[in-house]
């Protein structure tokens, strides 16, 4: 399993490593205490997105050193509307750790959450490594073992979700927890681009969409990630989980909520939030 270190080439970042370490520590502190911090983008402005990934990588390294296990990646900023909102034209990624996984229907304690919001996504699991340079879509498709319906419970260590690109990249792409559905589906058994998605809370619709909302097709997002990870020297490996990105708008999750996402052809998955 890889660390996803994007700061390996280092060149171009004009931010001092001590600043990177300091911002990384502040994000860890926020996560540990549950107290969100002010945006950190100003401190990263000189180094751009590369510096933001350096912060993310510093925390990934710290977590791995402290025993957390990486199980995959999440792709963020895959919706046109969100990209426009943040003024970017590319997705971003964050690390998935084993302890972020919640079982379908398992109650989630409020203490595990920070400003939680939910997104319905297609997740996929790789059956082989994607290590080649200049990867193509067929290589990605051939590497996918199966797909699953999933709910990503995003969170933010930044106060009031007051994020710009640098904040969210540094903050592990605003990741939180994730729930995977229990029925693996083969890659050719559903329509990746046109599959309908509806997410409900007690029968009330809170998000609607389709596969195309994720970068035109969730497979496009997967290809972007696979190429990006090869370029970063930390390629995706067999067994990795990839959360490809939201199929509709994110929705707020309140204590006590039971949220169900249904993706046509993939089935359903539930995120259950405890009252405390």
């Amino acid at each position: 399993m890889t660390s996803g270190n994007l700061s390996g080439n280092g060149a171009g970042s004009t931010i001092d490593q001590s600043v990177i370490e300091d911002l990384a520590a502040r994000l860890r502190q926020a996560e540990a205490t549950g107290v969100a911090i002010a945006p950190i983008r100003d401190g990263l402005a000189g180094g751009g997105v590369q510096a933001a990934y350096a912060v993310q990588s510093a925390n990934t390294a710290w977590h791995v050193a402290n025993g957390r296990r990486i199980v995959g990646r999440k792709i963020g900023l895959t919706a046109k509307a969100v990209q426009a909102q943040l003024g970017v034209d590319s997705p971003d990624f964050g690390m998935l750790f084993a302890d972020m996984e919640v079982a379908d229907g398992e109650e989630i304690a409020q203490s595990r959450l920070m400003q939680p919001r939910v997104e319905a996504e297609i997740s996929l699991v790789l059956g082989r490594d994607l290590t080649q340079e200049q990867l193509g879509i067929t290589e990605v498709m051939s590497a996918i073992e199966y797909a699953l319906p999933s709910i990503e419970i995003v969170g933010s260590r930044i106060e009031n979700w007051n994020i710009r690109l640098l904040d969210t990249v540094a903050d592990n792409a605003s990741s939180g927890l994730f729930v995977l559905g229990g029925r693996p589906v083969k890659i050719d058994a559903f329509d990746w681009r046109l599959c309908g998605m509806v997410m409900e809370r007690r029968g009330e619709q809170i998000s609607l969409g389709a596969g195309a909302a994720c970068l035109g097709n969730p497979l496009n997002a997967a290809l972007w990630l696979a190429r990006t990870m090869v370029e970063a020297g930390a390629p995706l490996r067999a067994g990795d989980i990839i959360m490809t990105g939201a199929l509709g708008p994110m929705a707020i999750a309140a204590p006590g909520d039971v949220i169900e996402a249904r993706i046509n052809g993939l089935g359903s998955v539930r995120a259950v939030f405890g009252n405390e």
Partner: peptide, 10 residues
Amino acid sequence: KPVQIGSTAA
């Protein structure tokens, strides 16, 4: 170019 993406569930 997509301008609306949704589901008949709406």
